[in-house]
Design a protein around this nucleic acid. Sequence first.
DNA 1: TTTTGTGAACTAGTTCACAGCT
DNA 2: AGCTGTGAACTAGTTCACAAAA
Lengths: 225, 225
Amino acid sequence: MTPSNKVGLRGGDQVSELTASRLSVYLRCLNALDLADVKTVSSRTLAEQFHLNAAQIRKDLAYFGEFGVRGVGYYVKDLKRHLRVILGLDRGVRVAVVGAGNLGLALADYPGFHREGFEIAALFDVERGKVGRKSRGGVRIVDMTEFRKVIKRENIDIVVLAVPAAAAQDVVNVAVAAGIRALLNFAPGTLKVPRGVKLKNVDLTVSLESLSFFLARGESDEGQD
Amino acid sequence: MTPSNKVGLRGGDQVSELTASRLSVYLRCLNALDLADVKTVSSRTLAEQFHLNAAQIRKDLAYFGEFGVRGVGYYVKDLKRHLRVILGLDRGVRVAVVGAGNLGLALADYPGFHREGFEIAALFDVERGKVGRKSRGGVRIVDMTEFRKVIKRENIDIVVLAVPAAAAQDVVNVAVAAGIRALLNFAPGTLKVPRGVKLKNVDLTVSLESLSFFLARGESDEGQD
DNA sequence: TTTTGTGAACTAGTTCACAGCT
DNA sequence: AGCTGTGAACTAGTTCACAAAA
């Protein structure tokens, strides 16, 4: 961790999940703009990129400070820097993946993670045959018995679960006991976490089924997400 | 009751994305209950499984008919069957994955899909070296030039995108032109689809970043999803 | 002028609470 | 008694619309 840049949230208000996700989307867009050497951007322009309302963007940002300049918009580099701090990306976030099956290996090597300041620092599995081998991208597979030790040593911030549903709760418990406070879960089903721990679920079956639902209903004027 | 498969949506009302996802979650739970030979279940019991409100479950279901019995609850087998029809799972849904990289291969072999009535009927890639080979699970990789033809021949319902961000919009366009009306996208960034086509995004970077955000904020009484 | 930041108005989603069925 | 189905009340999230700043 860094000396502590207290993210200047004005008012101790709870920030919603949806705002958090959008901040991440804004950052991606700013990266693209910065790369294209664009200097400033207005909430309107930003909103047009993804189908979003300009006021929403301004509100999301205004939660954390006044980053814009009236009549001008937002300075791309400046806002980008702020967002990286707000999202906690300034001090590289350290990630461990549990489960070295197809999905776990794919996640460990996923290029999008490494790019944005995440570091896949460990990959775990219980299977003897897998331990000691490496993912294509070169992440070494470690025995699950080493979990606690490695989590501590490597200062892991986030644990990604790519294990079978039946094993998921056990892994959560071990991770939480090891001091992990944020998990991204790809296993289907509902997991319990104690207060103070953040669990985010990505449920592939649910995603596909809800698409199937809309097909079945013939919802003919549905767009995004 | 159920001779008719017309999903009896009462009132032509738009059903929300959130309701759709929850239906899928309910179905999973019912499958487990059925397997455990439980005959009936109340909205209360169902709600306790995942942290949800009983009235919400009743409302979600009531959208589609009166499936419950007052004083008793819902008959597990019966509700399960109804949900499968509502979600369009009764006639096996046919899925194609585009992109035979790590993620695409993992998705093509994902056991959770096959289990719930989805059929991975095709896997596409542009890379010469990959075409003709098979995923570990045995799904053959087909050249992207064959896309349209195979989509038609195999009666594909849903296309899953596991291609680099730069290629994603092109694939969407081709898929839409081939008559696809539902897509599940794993590529980062915003894609455009015409009206009448449903696009669902699973953005791994956004998921991780929003976890990082909550870590950075030290949100200490956050629980689920 | 342009564009932000923000209260006020609105819309969507959730929970309550209870009548009515079994 | 127990539990559903549902209007009414509430909460969260979004959009509008405008004063204030550059």
